[in-house]
Amino acid sequence: MPRQRDVQAQRELLSNATWQVLAEDGLPGLTLRAVAERAGCTTGLVMHAFPTKRALLLHARDLLYERTAVRQDAAEAASADAFDALAAVLGQAVDLPHGHHEESRVWVGFLAAALADEALAERHRAANRSFLARIRRLVAACRPKWTDEQCELTTKSLVALVEGLNVLAAADPEAYPARLQQEALAKALTELRA
């Protein structure tokens, strides 16, 4: 009797391999062959689950979105009020203080690929807009008397700050250490509370 393959276990193996290759070798290193080597399998098995590099990238982006959403949900749920929730969620988005440097490298690799691929760009925009909506909801809860324009400007400024820190730290972690990231975020949040 032929052995049944565990499709879920294979997909998990390939997911982890895809993630590791993209985090360590960046976009140029992400190939079907590199994922197969990392997973210890054939390129045929990789192609069965992810027939193209785009499929690998989309899967990596989906994993990133799922991981960060779980942490942000938990951070928000554990907060005492809107200000604490905003600080906690944005704090989860900042890279180095939480050890998510690998995630930043995956995000940067995906973003680089998305610049030249509309399907990837659309996936990026959807995830980014979801994060913007969460932050905007929290900003509005912190400042219920603010206009829509004030909430939007503050939301996009805060998101640009944390995402910019992530991108810059992914490329030059010595220039953007954890302390600097935490202080920059704390300063922006102090101004919001004022």
Rank of each mutant, 00 (worst) to 15 (best):
R3C: 12
R3D: 14
R5M: 12
D6E: 11
V7E: 10
L13V: 00
L14K: 03
S15A: 12
A23N: 02
E24A: 09
E24K: 01
G26Y: 03
P28M: 02
P28W: 04
P28T: 03
T31G: 02
A34G: 06
V35N: 01
E37L: 14
E37V: 08
G40F: 00
C41V: 07
G44H: 11
G44W: 10
G44V: 05
F50H: 13
T52R: 11
K53A: 05
K53V: 01
A55T: 10
D62K: 06
L64F: 06
R71W: 11
R71K: 13
A75Q: 10
D84H: 09
D84T: 15
A88Y: 04
L96T: 07
H98Y: 15
H98R: 15
H101P: 04
S104D: 14
V106K: 05
W107Q: 14
G109H: 00
A112C: 08
A114T: 06
L115T: 12
A116D: 09
A116F: 08
H124A: 09
H124Y: 12
R125Y: 08
A127F: 11
A127G: 04
R129P: 05
F131T: 08
R134E: 00
I135T: 06
R137G: 07
V139E: 05
A141E: 11
K145E: 14
W146P: 01
T147G: 15
E152A: 14
T155P: 04
V159E: 07
L165S: 07
N166A: 13
A171M: 12
P173F: 03
P177G: 03
L185D: 08
A186G: 04
A186M: 09
L192Q: 00
L192I: 03
R193A: 15
R193L: 14
